[in-house]
Design a binder for these strands. Structure first.
Lengths: 123, 123
DNA sequence: GTAATTGCAAATAATTTGCTGGGTG
DNA sequence: CACCCAGCAAATTATTTGCAATTAC
């Protein structure tokens, strides 16, 4: 069910948000259970855990690598349609000799809403 | 002094490590002070705060954008000599219409030490 | 003397864990 | 019956903060 919630949103919600959604279907679910299942799903490669500067994690129901834009005003995370540059991993491996498994690329700026105001607040 | 410690290492230390170093010069310094100064330096753009998956932050004495390699075994963060692709920011801005200030790119894999063992431990 | 900065300890916030009990095959 | 997973609450960890004392100018 938690996987369903994450797959069903294009947002990149926090554990708390997932918890609130889950409660709508299953009011007696506990936050600990949500965290436990998020970790299981992450370890199974079904979802991704994102931590971009904030004190808390966000979760992404799309396990395929893609790039993100993070609004520095409100913290919103949105997907970018940029092609994933897998060859960069080979470049790094070749140059450094390191074993590279994956990479992450994020852009930071202001979303339209926060651009309007002087400074954004929460979401 | 804290800035000096960070500038003087090519590692990407944790606040605790900075604290330990600072204590060598100034034994009565407190961890709170270290955190306070790290935040001041970060806000002033003198250092960067990195949080790559772990539960704690690392700090980088080099404020100029550059890319990192993160070892999934031991958590070590090392700098990469890849050229910084600033034009990606324009690409994103053009495609999405968003206001982009900066970007971050990290590669994940195993460092030579952790590649040797089955799985790495702490540092 | 006033303002900025510290040490210390308590507070906070997100996440994890131990334990007990219920549900399932 | 054996086991897995949930609920709940307490524990943990990194970081922040309030406050009184100290330092700097």
């Amino acid at each position: 069910m938690i996987l369903g919630i994450l797959r069903g949103t294009k947002n990149h919600p926090t554990a708390d948000w997932v918890y609130e959604q889950a409660r709508k279907e299953l009011p007696e679910i506990s936050l600990g259970t949500v965290y436990r299942n998020l970790n299981v799903l992450r370890d199974a490669g079904e979802i991704m855990e994102l931590n971009y500067g904030s004190t808390f994690s966000r979760f992404d129901g799309n396990p395929l690598n893609h790039y993100h834009f993070v609004c520095e005003g409100c913290g919103q995370v949105t997907d970018l349609e940029l092609p994933v540059m897998d060859k960069l991993e080979q470049d790094v491996a070749r140059i450094t000799g390191l074993q590279v498994f994956h990479h992450r690329l994020e852009f930071y700026g202001l979303c339209p809403k926060c651009k309007g105001k002087g400074n954004g607040e929460s979401e």
